[in-house]
Design a protein around this nucleic acid. Structure first.
Length: 557
RNA sequence: UGGGGUGUCGCCAAGCGGUAAGGCACGGGACUUUGACUCCCGCACUCGUAGGUUCAAAUCCUGCCACCCCAGCCA
């Protein structure tokens, strides 16, 4: 499937080769989202790596909700996460798990550590722990570090039994208070928190911390390779410590990779949530959001997103990929697969003066010139048409070769017409253009073989229907709104969505199914919005524009 | 000041001692019943930097510089 390798796949390959630590084993990975928000395209990168590794080596990938902190998590996200993963085309079979399903075993492993003298109950307050953490040159300290094993054990059991109030004490791993790696300075591995857990209800009032829980979750599931993002690199010694000191069934290997950044967007849950709360976007599935549900609504296909990630590769360099590359991946696919249709977004009237009144012809148009197998459809033509305002200039600018007085253009698949004159309103805006047609150019080819430089799209005023079309564009006007010192809210574009109420669409678009994707010729790729369309009022969303070398899209600073 | 990472074209990214792949973006041209698509051509004598080893270095060694992550009872 994906033939290109990366440093992680190279490592796995070595691990399962003769002499490797997982020789003879099935590669087993996992995707472990925390159910506290919606998945975005950055998560999709991890998905591609986790499920991709399993696929590549004939292994398995589990889906596991990493729900060890009930304060932040909620079941409401679980189904949405599953839906997004399925949409991307990944299958976890029957291996769907909750980290919370292992609480009992984690508790036992914690007791094992206490028994071994490798964990102790610490009664410092959160503030005291922070104060006693030391600094770059000073070791941490805890007055409870050398408390007897039996005492810690009794206290820990009472913690579970709910005998102490929240925050009163913690269970800490006894590792190295002087370590240069702060994660090893006797990290807290259990805390008391009386809050109902979405999965375990009120069964627990103590919850394990990520650094303790995650390696156990992995080991219990027989994970061979635990792939995560770069910020966990400094946690790996702790991950290995837990694996080595608890009697877990296997020793997974953690490998870290750089998370994805994309220009002109923000990726952190906090910032995305903020955009919603401030009413800047309509919700998690707003088509401008980098969430998977947002991209789905925008018209992105699963395969375009997977292609995007595959071609970006995997490394350990903090990288920010150009938004244009995401757009490229979508265009590339849709050019191949989307049916063409004609739609006029900024209509002006075109009257063919020498065309008979009340006459209608039907023309046959290819659905996709890139793929003849997609067949054809019929569109009607008559004396009065709509064309794009952009396709006419009374006084043509340099190199303009569309419609202007005296010039000929071809109406896609119909006739060659010659512009005669135009009519303007009181404000000087052109509303009607008059032309004559060449009856010998039926279908678009001239009888005398003269070349027509330009072909424009059109719709028949008699059969076209009005629809709302929403033109979405990037949300921010700066390349890196996600930088820590960037006031990203101040850089939200006020024209990131332009709503066109009365676009004129060709009749065939009227009854297309939700989410159907089209190329509106010469404009871009659009899809029918399943969320806001009514049976009688379809609403179309622009997924991405077509490239335009006449007026290159100027990139905002 | 401690620990862990990373530095190859504007942006991603191959490269693993033998003399800088590819994609995006960009510029030029051809073709075109979408100024799209497609197709050509151009786009790093140079790999953060300074030395060293070698017949030969982006690849090995040493120093320096820059940037990122870590002191939550978050993940």
């Amino acid at each position: 499937m994906n033939q290109s390798s990366n440093f992680i796949f190279d490592i796995i390959e070595q691990d399962i080769a003769p002499g490797g630590q997982f020789f003879g084993k099935t590669v087993h990975t996992r995707f472990p989202p925390e159910p506290n928000g919606y998945l975005h395209i950055g998560h999709a990168k991890a998905l591609e790596i986790d499920f991709g590794a399993a696929e590549r080596f004939g292994g398995l990938c589990n889906l596991r909700m990493d729900d060890t902190n009930p304060t932040k998590e909620d079941e409401e996200y679980v189904d949405a996460i599953k839906e997004d993963i399925r949409w991307l085309g990944h299958d976890w079979g029957d291996r769907f798990y909750y980290a919370s399903d292992y609480f009992e075993q984690m508790y036992e492993f914690a007791k094992e550590l206490i028994t071994k003298g490798l964990a102790y109950v610490c009664e410092q307050t959160p503030e005291e722990v922070r104060l006693n953490r030391g600094d770059l040159s000073t070791p941490a300290k805890s007055p409870f570090r050398d408390r007897p094993i039996e005492e810690s054990m009794a206290l820990f059991e009472k913690m579970r039994d709910g005998e102490f109030e929240d925050g009163k004490m913690t269970l800490r791993a006894k590792i190295d208070l002087a370590s240069g790696n702060f994660n090893m300075r006797d990290p807290v591995i259990y805390r008391i928190n009386r809050i109902r857990h979405h999965n375990t209800g009120d069964r627990w009032c103590i919850y394990p911390m990520y650094d303790f829980a995650h390696p156990i979750e992995d080991a219990l599931e027989g994970i061979t390779h635990s792939l995560c993002s770069l910020e966990f690199e400094a946690h790996r010694p702790l991950y290995d410590w837990v694996i080595n000191h608890c009697s877990v069934p296997c020793k997974p290997r953690q490998i870290e990779f750089a998370r994805l950044g994309i220009t002109h967007t923000v990726m952190s849950k906090r910032k995305l949530r903020n955009l919603i709360e401030q009413g800047i976007v309509d919700g998690w599935d707003d088509p401008r959001m980098p969430t998977l549900c947002g991209l789905r609504r925008r018209g992105y296909t699963p395969s375009s997103i997977r292609t995007f990630h595959e071609r970006n590769g995997v490394s350990k360099v903090n990288s920010v990929v150009d938004y244009a590359f995401l757009e490229h991946c979508l265009r590339e696919e849709l050019n191949r697969t989307a049916f063409r249709a004609m739609a006029v977004l900024q209509p002006i009237t075109l009257i063919i003066e020498n065309y008979p009144e009340n006459q209608t012809e039907v023309f046959t148009v290819e659905n996709n010139p890139e793929n003849p197998e997609d067949g054809t459809r019929e569109v009607s033509f008559s004396k009065k048409l709509f064309i794009e305002a952009d396709d006419f200039q009374e006084v043509p600018e340099k190199k303009y070769f569309r419609l202007f007085p005296g010039n000929e253009v071809r109406l896609k698949s119909a006739y060659v017409v010659k512009c005669i004159r135009c009519e303007k309103d009181s404000a000087g805006k052109v509303h009607t253009v008059y032309a004559t047609y060449d009856p010998d150019s039926r279908g678009g080819n001239t009888a005398d073989g003269r070349k027509i430089k330009s072909t424009i799209h059109w719709v028949d005023a008699d059969t076209a229907f009005n629809a709302t079309v929403k033109l979405y564009d990037r949300l921010f006007d700066v390349e890196s709104p996600d930088l820590a010192d960037c006031d990203y809210i101040a850089h939200v574009r006020d024209d990131s969505v332009i709503t066109i109420e009365n676009a004129k669409l060709e009749a065939s678009l009227r009854d297309c199914p939700d989410q159907a994707r089209f190329q509106f010729m010469r404009l871009g790729y659009f899809c029918k919005d399943a969320k806001s369309s009514n049976p009688d009022e379809p609403i179309f969303i622009r997924s991405v524009s077509l490239k335009d070398s006449f007026r290159p899209k100027n990139d905002t600073p």
